[in-house]
């Protein structure tokens, strides 16, 4: 199927089999391996990207269902994403870093909608992104700090 996507502001035209996930197409066809797949069944949040502004699981999203959509991934560069990068660094919001791309994209979605979230709102919005290393404290502080800096 022919699919037109705008990824991090860049237009792409792709020919993909209908059952292929957005995560797979990003990683394989576009070599954008920043988006990680850790469970491939919608449970961990590692593959989170923004689809027309919503934080979605790219492992359970057909690329073919995203025609004419805007996709934002960790490879992008926006002032908000840069602020979050700095804050994750300053607050050690990661250990192994495998969940980090998904964490960042969930944080972007949260702060776009709720620029000054409470701690409880941060916890609610980030609860779909598992971090097995347990860097959550730093993640929570980083999201709060990025909001403050905004």
């Amino acid at each position: 199927m022919q699919v037109r996507l705008t990824i991090n502001g860049q237009p792409h035209e792709l020919d993909v089999a209908p059952h292929r996930s957005l995560a797979d197409v990003l990683r394989t066809d576009l070599a954008m391996t920043g988006t990680k797949v850790a469970c491939a069944e919608g449970t961990c949040g590692s593959c989170t990207v923004l689809l027309d502004g919503r934080a979605v699981l790219s492992c359970l999203t057909f690329a073919s269902a995203c025609d004419s959509s805007k996709v934002a991934t960790v490879e992008g560069s926006t002032p908000l994403l840069e602020r979050l990068r700095d804050a994750f660094t300053a607050h050690d919001g990661f250990q192994c870093g495998f969940c980090t791309p998904g964490q960042l994209m969930s944080a972007v979605a949260l702060l776009q909608r709720t620029p000054r979230p409470s701690r409880a709102e941060i916890r609610t919005a980030m609860a779909g992104n598992l971090c097995r290393c347990g860097a959550y404290e730093g993640i929570e502080q980083a999201v709060a700090a990025a909001a403050e800096a905004g």
Binding site: T48, R54, A109, G128
Partner: peptide, 12 residues
């Protein structure tokens, strides 16, 4: 609605 799954599952 807020109790459903994870934030991403609620969006999708």
């Amino acid at each position: 609605a807020g109790a459903v799954g994870s934030p991403q599952l609620r969006e999708m």
